[in-house]
Nucleic acid binder design. Structure first.
Lengths: 243, 243
DNA sequence: CGTCGGGTTGATAACTTTCAAATTTCGTGG
DNA sequence: CCACGAAATTTGAAAGTTATCAACCCGACG
């Protein structure tokens, strides 16, 4: 198998030029393959036994449920992303994780990870970089919810997803496949599904983006970036930093 | 000086029983003391030279400015908190950091930190725990903005601040000193300052909390927890985990 | 063929912002 | 200690944004 076909390799390559040994160490982490059906819960809040995964294919979401029953999706994970890396440290998970589509993921034993970090320290740095980037995205999501209106927020969200997917070769500025329902979108954007529907219509009518039958199609990428106030600096790494 | 007077020591003690050597290693990190006046910028977005600090006294906020000029405060830092730990890894800061009050902070050299982690591995774990807790708080803040209305959100925020301050001995369930203006509160809560004002009035009139002249006074802590849907599990560590 | 999970639309209600202005608080210099 | 100006708080009214409720449509699927 070509290494670049592994999303995690592809993602880390954007940050560090990896040697063949390092690449195969990553490939190694991907034994222990698991398959999950759509809608399956991987981690429940309060759960003790913590497992970490690398997502190979499919989409996942992590969210919190409020006492009132509404939920807020904190983040979606796409191929190449880690699941539950952080919460391994906590005794109990502080949120739920659920598959959005059928998913292939590799279970990562903490011991394996530590061992490969010991052998290939640059790998540790690269993974830490990935974790920092994830945190930066949560922060950007927070800004979305706090200070962007529904239109900007939705636009920004679609653009950010695009940027992330590009890192693993699953999108271009022309568009991408997106398996999210308007309900999922709503729970991520802090809106009602009905309002999301209207906003998507507005974006369509303005000739900016289309989102139909699982496909996001950008009609005017530049104008959308402008509308959303999208800054990709925290996602773009023009070229690998770690040589 | 009594170690427990150092907020970082006090905070980490909630997580790990630290030996005398470990304690003094932490105290050691606090040489290189710096003082900053109120309203001073510590880190600017896009800045290259990254510095990390531990806050010894005073309050700080980290925020993002949108193209429209509005801002969203991502988090406040209080004594015992790290500043800029994560962004040291990124080449450029992705947000601004500014003092809210006069501040005393110790500059931490990455090399010093790594050295003390090498000597005292349990310290590394404790700090990592603190970082995870910080991330959990950002997530909770995100949920605030996405799915709680202004009243719940404000109540939740005041309670969370209380829980954090308790860890460093600066609050009780009776109340605490809080140097935040309603403008700062508004930028953190994703509301207008005017609305914050009204919400605070409502909370006062319901007999739940008062927030006047820099003091938060809880009148009915239990009822407030109920209203806010406040879950402190992610903050409470009933007793040290690492023995 | 009926059901079910999306998606779509309209009407109404609730929440929050914006604008404008008055009042209070607070730090500073006299 | 007082006066002054700047900053923060408070209030009202009007406008804008988003949620909620109630339908209806449509395609997939057993």
């Amino acid at each position: 198998m070509n290494d670049a076909a592994i999303p995690l390799v592809r993602k880390l390559m954007a940050f560090a030029v990896l040697s063949d040994e390092e690449n195969s160490a990553i490939v190694d982490l991907h034994r222990r393959r698991r398959t999950f059906q759509k809608g399956q819960t991987l981690v429940s809040e309060g759960e003790r036994e913590q497992r970490a995964f690398v997502l190979a294919s499919g989409w996942v979401c992590s969210y919190k449920i409020l006492p009132s029953g509404t939920r807020q999706i904190v983040d979606f994970q796409i191929p190449g992303d880690f699941l539950g890396l952080r919460s391994v440290l906590f005794r109990t998970a502080d949120h739920d994780i659920e598959t959005v589509t059928k998913v292939e993921a590799s279970e990562i034993l903490a011991s394996d990870l530590i061992e490969s970090f010991r052998k290939y320290p640059r790998l540790a740095t690269a993974v830490l970089w990935a974790a920092s980037r994830d945190e930066a995205m949560v922060v950007e999501h927070l800004v979305d919810l706090g200070r962007r209106n529904a239109l900007e927020r939705t636009a920004h969200f679609l653009l950010e997803l695009c940027a992330r997917l590009q890192l693993v070769g699953m999108a271009t500025t022309a568009g991408y496949s997106c398996p999210l329902s308007q309900y999922l979108l709503a729970d991520a954007l802090g809106l009602s599904a009905i309002h999301v529907n209207r906003i998507l219509r507005q974006l369509r009518e303005k000739g900016l983006v289309q989102f139909h039958q699982g496909k996001v199609v950008f009609e005017d990428y530049e104008a959308l970036v402008e509308l959303a106030g999208f800054e990709s600096t925290y996602l773009d790494q023009p070229e690998p930093i770690l040589l």
